[in-house]
Amino acid sequence: MLQKDNIAKGKDSTGRIADTDAFIKGLWRENPVFVQVLGMCPVLAVSNSAENALAMGLATMFVLAMSNMLVSSLRNFIPKQARIASYILIIATFVTITDYAIQAISVDLHKSLGAFISLIVVNCLILSRAEAFASKNSVLPSLLDALGMGGGFVLGLFCLGAVREILGNGTFFGLALFPEGFQPWIVMILPAGGFFTLALWLLIFNRWKVK
């Protein structure tokens, strides 16, 4: 009886550890932005302010979570040869939903994100999670994996967006941070600043890994 209990407990706890791990790894150890360097196009393009970065990150996270759930629940029905095409169709459906939802919530936000919402379709992060994780696991771990990876993606985008907005505009979420005389570094909100900021963050991460 006791043994049985222990085994049950052991199974439970290992199960939980595995689930938590599916969630945690995306946030830190396999962070999609800083470690895997996946889905860079939106990361660089819309991270010119903290607000845009956050909105883009959340939109991607939503698409990732929904498509991972659907892919994992359909994983036994999708034929092997047609799987990539099916995944892309599933992703495109959710991206269309997100696109229209953002347009309904805030027209300004939709305008500033522009075509990059539609371009979530070709974000390699989403396809790679569908192929590498959701197609082999059941619904709950897939959802956790998506939330973890999506969370990591939001974190990465936010880190970039915050730095670029603070230095390039002198504001944070539209609030002025510096006294009057501050000369904003215009270059940071220009495309070049995106490359430099990402390089800087990767440098910090590399430094931390080398240690």
Partner: peptide, 14 residues
């Protein structure tokens, strides 16, 4: 060593 690879490419791209 830290700068090699992606970081260097990104700086050049910038």
């Amino acid at each position: 060593r830290m700068v090699k690879g992606t970081v260097l490419t990104l700086i050049i791209a910038g």
